Computed example of a mutant assay.
Amino acid sequence: MSLDDLQDDVEGEYSALGEELSVELDGETRNELALLEAALDPEDTDDLVRRAVHMLFQRTVDTGNLDFHLRSGYDVTYDEYLSGMTYDEMTGGGQSFPQQQQKDDRRYQF
Score class of each variant (00 low, 15 high):
G27M: 04
G92N: 07
Y14N: 04
L66H: 04
R59L: 08
E11V: 02
T45L: 04
P42R: 01
G94A: 05
A16C: 03
Y14E: 03
E43R: 02
V23L: 14
V49A: 15
D62E: 15
A52I: 05
T91W: 03
E13M: 09
G12R: 11
T60G: 08
A39Y: 03
Y81N: 01
R71K: 14
D44S: 03
G84I: 01
G18D: 15
R51D: 14
A39G: 02
P42G: 03
L66Y: 06
M85G: 00
Q58G: 12
N65L: 07
L82E: 11
E20L: 10
E13H: 05
E11I: 03
E20V: 11
V76K: 07
Y78N: 13
S72Y: 12
D44C: 02
N65W: 02
R59G: 07
M85C: 01
Y14R: 14
G73Y: 04
D41K: 12
V49L: 15
R59M: 06
L82N: 06
L33R: 01
S22N: 14
P42I: 00
R59Q: 12
V53K: 06
V23I: 12
T29R: 05
E19L: 08
L70R: 02
E20N: 14
N31R: 07
H54M: 14
G94W: 02
E24T: 14
M85R: 09
D62F: 09
T60M: 12
A52S: 15
D47V: 11
D41I: 02
D41F: 05
N65Q: 11
D88G: 12
Y74R: 05
Y74W: 10
T29A: 13
T63Y: 02
E19M: 09
A34E: 15
D47S: 14
L33A: 01
T29L: 09
H69R: 11
V53I: 14
L33D: 01
Q58T: 13
D41A: 13
T86Q: 00
L48E: 06
A52C: 08
Y78L: 12
D88Y: 03
R50I: 13
L40D: 09
E19T: 10
M90A: 14
D67Q: 03
T86I: 00
F68W: 06
E13N: 03
T63K: 02
G84K: 04
Y14Q: 08
T45Q: 09
Q58V: 07
G18S: 13
Y74D: 12
D75H: 10
D67C: 04
G12T: 09
G92Q: 07
E89H: 04
E37S: 04
L33W: 00
N31V: 00
D41Q: 14
N65A: 15
Y14V: 02
L40K: 10
T91V: 10
L25A: 10
D26M: 06
L48V: 02
D46Y: 01
D75C: 02
R71E: 15
D44V: 00
T45C: 01
E19Y: 05
D62Y: 08
M85P: 00
L21N: 05
G12F: 03
E13S: 04
L48G: 07
L40A: 13
L40S: 11
V10Y: 12
L35S: 11
L35E: 15
A38V: 03
D88S: 10
